[in-house]
Design a protein around this nucleic acid. Structure first.
Lengths: 208, 208
DNA sequence: GTCTATACGCAGATAGAC
DNA sequence: GTCTATCTGCGTATAGAC
């Protein structure tokens, strides 16, 4: 009984903190606002998590992991490169569509000396080398153009993440602040970005 | 004499505020830190700029304009599309290399309801429609692949801006936190991104 | 576990001397 | 114009009742 209550409250706090931290960032967030959002008292926040810092770390660690989904799994399957990239891009944009504020949040915090993300990153066992090796293998086989595999990876991540991170600006620039149009545009980008990337790197015939 | 002094101090304040705001953001910056950085007293900040908010607006407005350099000029010259894009990408990455923290700063602030950037943006008379029209014209002529010109623009901006905005993370992911290597990598990207974009959209022979 | 009340420090802003 | 000293409010954190 008391156990259940505890879990519910902790859950509510985490949910509220997530909402507020994502919107305002560590520096801009207020414990009072989190408490209001959770429908509880400010003191309870300190009862469950000792400090604002601790609460933030719990949220950040959790959210950070979402920014790198199962890249490895997708990138090292036995599918042909076209399919691998297509699936990755589509899945990734889908994830971001469901968490549109995530990129801006992560960027904001990693650019404020939050340094423990290095630790989190390593604990994820992402190992980019496997992905680079995969691209290099495709180059050996003559399937894709020769280039630094890091550029391929970074270009893909850029085109997926940046439009979300810069949404307020791009929405204004590209669609005169029409939010609906921007959302629709992001949906279409799943195909558009895939095509763009494949055009850029595939050596076989361009299948437009 | 007093005029000169005034100008010097105001200059020093603006320089210091720029440094601190870029690093810490509006929420994280402290007036005391700006005063220290400028080598003056905290009260002087309020003498020259009435409030932290006013000071921030001065800095933000100024920096925001740097994020959109002379796009129009480059994009509407009479040069062939290959040259236009090459020059834009190279110039832009150069600008960002000299102001590496700018993208992260702008992204952070536009994602915090700083809404006056809309006003600034319009005052810049950027008019993206001219650029879109240029791309559509190239499509008509059969020079580049048919696609939403907004995607082209956004993809280019993404690949230029994101690597700077996400530097702490990408440096870790791609180069195991070797700062030198990342800087070198960004230099090489001027050519790499150009090639990538041209491969993606040019219909003529791929000149690798 | 949850609340109210309060301590305490910090940061933005002002007063006033020089 | 520039400084020191000070006010004021806010935000984190704690004490203590229930």
């Amino acid at each position: 009984m008391s156990k259940i209550k505890k879990d519910n409250t902790e859950e509510k706090i985490l949910e509220a903190a997530k909402t507020v931290f994502i919107k305002k960032g560590m520096d801009g967030a207020r414990m009072q606002e989190i408490a209001n959002e959770a429908g509880i008292n400010k003191a309870l926040l300190h009862y469950y998590f000792r400090s604002k810092q601790k609460l933030f770390e719990a949220i950040f660690t959790n959210l950070f992991k979402q920014i790198f989904p199962n890249i490895i799994k997708l990138m090292t399957s036995e599918e042909p490169i076209e399919k691998k990239l297509k699936e990755f891009i589509e899945n990734y944009i889908d994830i971001l569509t469901n968490n549109p504020r995530l990129p801006a949040f992560i960027l904001r915090e990693i650019n404020r000396g939050v340094d423990f993300f290095g630790q989190i990153f390593r604990s994820q066992s992402i190992n980019p080398n496997i992905i680079f090796a995969m691209f290099e293998n495709e180059m050996e086989k003559g399937n894709i153009v020769r280039m630094n595999p890091r550029d391929i990876m970074l270009n893909i991540l850029s085109m997926c993440l940046f439009p979300f991170a810069a949404k307020p600006l791009m929405q204004l620039m590209l669609f005169e602040n029409d939010s609906e149009a921007y959302t629709q545009f992001m949906e279409e980008r799943k195909a558009s970005v895939t095509k763009f990337v494949l055009n850029a790197i595939l050596l076989k015939d361009k299948h437009l």
